[in-house]
Amino acid sequence: MEFTPVSATIGGVLIGLSASVLLLRNDRVAGISGIVGGALARPRELSWRVMFIGGLLLGGLVASFVAPQAFGAPLRLPIWQLALGGLLVGVGTRLGNGCTSGHGVCGISRGSPRSLANTALFIGFGMLSLYLVRRFAG
C-alpha cells in the first residue's frame, strides 16, 4: 500500500471534528463500538445512537457511488477468518469498552492511561494476529 500521509491526516481531522462536535454539543463520546453496542443494549439511549449510525450509513452509501475506490479491492479471505475476526472485534470492543475511535482517538486525547493501554494492546495484537495468519494460514 502507498503511504498517504496527507489524505490520512485530512480524514483524521474530519473524524476529530465530528467527535468534537458530538462532545461539545451533545456531551457524548464518539466511540463507534459503544454507540453500536449501546444501541443493541440500552433502549433509553437508542434514538441519538440510531441517528449517528444512520449518518455513518448514509455517508458510506454516498461514498460507495462517488468514491467506490475508497473501499478497496474485495477482501478475499476464508469465511471462517471473516467470521472469527468479526466476532473477536465485537466481543473485544465491548469487553474493553471501546475501539479505535473511543479509546484510540477520544481516550488518548484525554490522556487516559486506560485508553493508551487498550490502544497499544489492540495495535500490538493486531500486528501479531496478521503476522500469524499470514505465516501459518495464508
Partner: peptide
C-alpha cells in the same frame, strides 16, 4: 478486551 479486539482486527 484490547487483546481480543486486536486479534480480530488483524
Amino acid at each position: 478486551g484490547g487483546i481480543l479486539f486486536g486479534l480480530g482486527w488483524g
